[in-house]
Nucleic acid binder design. Structure first.
Length: 302
DNA sequence: CCGAACCTGTGT
DNA sequence: ACACAGGTTCGG
């Protein structure tokens, strides 16, 4: 379910609820969900941060890292008792970890640095870290993987998943099968811009709700209606009207436009305007115009 | 690098 | 009955 923008949204909704609260106990209703690297000790939540797709509750010397994987949710009020896999007990409240597929994990650790935490230590940089401006192109040069695989690999950049990988490739006019090392410096720059733009927009819209995602208040995200590739198999491209195609890359369904997402250097690009939100609005506007014209003139307008 | 595995549910 | 679902990790 959650990629970087959804996890960021959850973290934002958790902060006002949990900061300065003491985590007094963890109740595991599904034993595999909760992992203890050290014996549990109660601690006061000093801060809550996101790193990649991880949620981290931080004490002075204690950490609780939470990964929602596919169907995990952190909620004040559970929506379905059957799927509650763990309960975090605080002094004045509790937080329910709901997870239909049981893939999610909660890890308690103490006496360790943030960046050395299990799971965290293998993550690549956050998309907005300045070092990426320099290192991103070099990283691409070193990879034989397709760009879709590259973007999904958390060691390269932290936080991108299947939805946003497709949205990013679409926005950057890049074919998801493009071999990473064949990407030029200028296209790498455009790609990094698309990564930041797409993720920023999704955070502003509080994430994408397809089937499962809700924040800690139970609210859905608003980014669904702005998706341009993911979930649009067979529908026409908002830029060039060609039906979108799906393939499997990295064992994940990948949606892309076979006409305007080109392998860089191979073919010329269809158009150069970069603001896809603008194009989306233009597209819906034109659709409405066509509908009105049809109503006036019938199927064959002059 | 690829497929399978981990789970449970939904939709065709 | 079968394919598929927003993620990660393992073995070959």
């Amino acid at each position: 379910m959650p990629e970087l923008p959804e996890v960021e949204t959850v973290v934002q909704t958790l902060r006002p609820k949990l900061i300065d609260q003491q985590l007094t106990a963890i109740q595991a209703l599904n034993s595999a969900t909760v992992v203890y690297k050290n014996p549990f000790e109660p601690f006061i939540i000093k801060n809550i941060v996101r790193r990649g797709k991880y949620i981290i509750l931080m004490g002075d010397d204690h950490f609780l890292t939470i990964h929602l994987r596919m169907t995990g949710r952190l909620l004040e009020k559970a929506t379905n008792k059957k799927f509650i896999r763990a309960i975090l007990a605080f002094t004045n409240s509790s937080l329910h970890f709901e997870d239909m597929r049981k893939f999610g994990r909660i890890v308690f650790a103490t006496g360790i640095e943030l960046e050395a935490l299990p799971g965290i230590r293998n993550l690549g940089p956050e998309p907005w870290q300045e070092q990426l401006d320099k290192s991103f192109y070099q990283q691409l040069q070193r990879s034989n993987a397709t760009i879709k695989s590259f973007l999904l690999n958390q060691k390269n950049i932290a936080g991108i998943g299947n939805i946003y990988a497709d949205e990013i490739c679409f926005h950057a006019y890049i074919n998801p099968l493009t071999v990473s090392k064949s990407i030029t410096a200028s296209i790498a720059k455009r790609l990094l811009n698309s990564i930041r733009y797409i993720l920023n927009k999704a955070i502003t819209l509080r994430g994408t709700t397809f089937a499962h995602f809700i924040d800690a208040d139970g609210k859905k995200g608003n980014n669904f209606e702005y998706l341009q590739a993911y979930g649009r198999k067979g529908k026409s491209c908002f830029r060039c009207n060609t039906p979108l195609t799906t393939i499997k890359i990295h064992n994940r369904t990948t949606v892309y436009c076979p006409a305007c997402q080109k392998i860089p250097g191979n073919k010329k690009e269809v158009c150069t305007a970069a603001d896809s939100l603008y194009i989306l609005h233009l597209h819906t506007f034109l659709k409405r115009c066509r509908k009105i014209l049809r109503r006036i003139f019938g199927d064959h307008p002059p």
